[in-house]
Amino acid sequence: MSGGPAGLDIDHMEPLAEAWDSVASKWTDERSERYANDLDAHRSLVAVSSGPNPSKGDQDPAEWKPPAKCASCTYATDWVTAKPGWKLTIDHAEGKALAKLATSCTEATVKFTRDGARGAVRCEGGDGRANPAG
Rank of each mutant, 00 (worst) to 15 (best):
W27Q: 13
H42A: 11
K56C: 01
G119R: 02
A71K: 12
S2N: 14
L45M: 15
A62Q: 03
A76D: 04
T103H: 13
K83G: 06
H12R: 08
T113I: 12
Y75C: 01
M13P: 02
G125E: 13
S2V: 15
A133T: 00
P84N: 08
L39A: 12
P61T: 01
S44Y: 04
R114D: 15
V48I: 06
G57A: 13
C73W: 05
R34M: 04
L101K: 03
L45K: 12
P84G: 12
R129Y: 08
A71M: 12
E107A: 15
Y75N: 04
P61N: 00
E14L: 15
D58R: 01
A108Q: 01
W27L: 11
G3Y: 05
V121P: 06
V80A: 02
G134F: 00
E124L: 08
R43A: 11
A17Q: 13
M13L: 02
D21E: 13
K83M: 11
G128A: 08
A82I: 03
P52I: 07
P132N: 03
A133D: 07
L8W: 10
L88F: 06
V121L: 01
G3A: 05
M13H: 04
S104F: 03
A24T: 11
R118V: 11
S25T: 08
D29K: 14
A62D: 08
T77M: 11
F112C: 10
K65A: 11
S44T: 14
K111F: 08
D11K: 00
A130W: 03
A82S: 15
S50T: 10
P52S: 10
A62E: 05
T77D: 04
D9K: 09
T28F: 07
A99P: 01
T74F: 00
R122K: 13
R114W: 06
K83W: 04
A93K: 13
G57K: 07
D78C: 00
L39M: 11
G128Q: 05
T109I: 09
T113L: 13
Q59F: 02
S49Q: 02
R122H: 09
E14S: 07
S32I: 05
G95Y: 05
